[in-house]
Design a protein around this nucleic acid. Structure first.
Lengths: 220, 220
DNA sequence: GAGCCAGGTATTGGATACAATCTCCATCTC
DNA sequence: GAGATGGAGATTGTATCCAATACCTGGCTC
């Protein structure tokens, strides 16, 4: 059994970046709110320099908005943004699946299966954090099988942008059940080498999530 | 006649960012080369802090690679990367055109026409820098008519990633001529409201560029 | 001679201090 | 009273300085 290695971030900026992501997902930093650098830096126990570098990364991902001499503000996502993100995801993820399915390896299929089971277990026990992680492993396991690193990166950023809302979707037990059924069907199609079917199933999978979220989000 | 307003960058980081982009496009900073912070900061007449923030932006765009405690290195683009970038552009730009054509306004059409003429003039006089700028105005004028800000942003980053090679393509007079014909045909289709035709023409337009570049680029 | 270790140098990472800018509110002008 | 003006306080932007890390070179061991 290999020892679980501590991956202490090699730099403060990376540690701060991870913390910032958590703060945004958890809603501790609320949309629209200004990121007060002095206060946050003190809370993280670092100076403002690494904090600002981490914020620049988040700016590039659209998670925060930068206004010169005014500062950084947590991005607000309205329903139109959500639709746009999902539309772009549709384009990119569909391509990934079409490329991935014909060339997926046995190892990757095993990883996918395990991720799927992890989602089911976490879903049953109501552990939403674990479920979200396993869900990512499932989806990105498939996407990364396309061997298109830039595309994977873009999709990852799009997922991050809507992370806040995804947990909202999972908090409903009915949705969790649907997700599991949909995952199984997708995996089946991938195993059968039916890219078109997998693509279609994943599209439905996403559309379910969007329309559920549209009912919850403010209309702008 | 309104006076040309000075847009002096409000912060050093933005000024440095613009300079860095130029240095990369012009090849002054060569692919794979390490960005030595002290030297560059001195050359730009700023401290390392704003330089580092500008580099973080470029890192997010994939223009430079960051390795902790080692520094920033100018990204290298091989032929597979180029193909991937163009494949993603195809997906995103095709969507943009499909959305844009049915809803484009008269003002936007005028802007497009003017951009097209600017490209032709610059092409004829062999002014490659002006041509590249006008070419962007043409393409992004169309893309932005889709009113999908995130998609526009992603496409812009993809263009930036391959800027180095685009000027290579334009340096050939024959290519420049083909580009002008293709632009005219695209504009015609957009005017006629034929989104499918515009999409197809733009796809060909891109494919010409890729295959020409593939013949020039190192095979890895 | 190959490989390893130690120490010096170059370079990056981060803390602090100060400068520039914005925001807000009181005051003044008309 | 509406709008302009000016200044105090808060916040961001940048320069400088020091610490931490990586890289390179020379010497040592076997």
């Amino acid at each position: 059994m290999t020892r679980q290695q501590f991956r202490r971030p090699p730099t403060a900026q990376e540690a701060v970046l991870a913390e910032l992501r958590l703060s945004i997902i958890s809603g501790e930093l609320r949309p629209g709110e200004q990121v007060l650098q002095d206060a946050l830096a003190e809370r993280f126990g670092v100076s403002r320099v690494p904090l600002r570098e981490a914020l620049k990364i988040l700016e590039g991902e659209g998670q925060v908005i930068y206004r010169p001499h005014r500062g950084y503000f947590v991005a607000e996502l309205d329903i139109d943004d959500l639709r746009e993100v999902y539309r772009i995801r549709d384009l990119l993820e569909s391509e990934a699946v079409r490329v991935a399915v014909p060339q997926i390896t046995a190892e990757e299929l095993v990883a996918l299966t395990m991720a799927l089971e992890d989602v089911e277990r976490a879903s049953a026990s109501g552990d939403l954090v674990t479920m979200a992680l396993a869900n990512r492993r499932f989806h990105f396991g498939l996407i990364e099988a396309a061997q298109m690193p830039r595309l994977s990166r873009l999709v990852r950023v799009l997922w991050d942008a809507t992370d806040v809302y995804r947990s909202l979707y999972y908090s409903d037990g009915g949705h969790r059940e649907a997700v599991n059924d949909e995952h199984s069907a997708v995996l089946e199609a991938v195993r059968a080498g039916d890219a078109d079917q997998a693509e279609a199933l994943l599209r439905t999978h996403r559309e379910r999530a969007v329309s559920a979220l549209e009912r919850v989000l403010p209309a702008r």
